[in-house]
Amino acid sequence: MRDLLRADWPRALRSRCYRWILLFALFLGAGCVLICTVETNDRRLLLAEASNNLVMFLSMFMAVLSGALSVIAIAAEFSSGVIRNKCIIGHRRSHILFAWVLIYSMTTVLSFLAFFSAFFLALLCSGAALSQASAGAIAGNLLLILLFMLKFQMFSLLAVCIYPDVKTAVICYLLSNASLIPIMLASVDGENDEAVGLLSRFFFVGFLNDFQLDATTAQPWLTALCVLSLGAGYLLLALAYFQRKELK
């Protein structure tokens, strides 16, 4: 697997799409704060204002975008036939898949870091009262957001293992994500419904309704567990599909 990482990691980093996404993450992170500075004059309230569900929405957008990048990059291996070269020289399919998991998880982590670095740097530059914030709550929430973003990566892997054609995979991936919107709407209407509450912990869109970056989230471990189990489920399905796939 080391050889797979050695070959694919530089290629992922050198990808023009990926560089654009990193730039976009920086722009979005800073832009999120900029919008809030326009809306509020009180710098003490800036952190609270910027930490509402706008940052969640934009980070979700970043997650979808990072997932789409993985879909495009991996589907390109199928369409160009490079995947054949990997199999012919004896790389196991499970190793190929896990190399993708590692590489595109790392690119997601880098996008996440770019987005939130720009976000916090913009807050600092805007004079927001960061010292009043609970570092523990923010760190916990950031970790949850990162888990959600990684879960999108696992879903993108599943999409590309089922639909190796670039266009089909991207469209299916985006449509599947759009189909989560009803869960978000249901979680708005049924905030007190336990089942909807539990369901919303699995999906970013449900989670962001009642979210504040600088406030402790209720039962964060349950949310983390839900997200991790769903991500693992996607990964296992992707592995099952990929192992059985008849390559041309």
Binding site: A76, S80, I88
Partner: peptide, 15 residues
């Protein structure tokens, strides 16, 4: 054993 094997199947595979 496959590490000693090379192949061009149908169309050449490259980026």
């Amino acid at each position: 054993a496959r590490k000693k094997l090379g192949a061009v199947v149908e169309s050449p595979s490259m980026f």
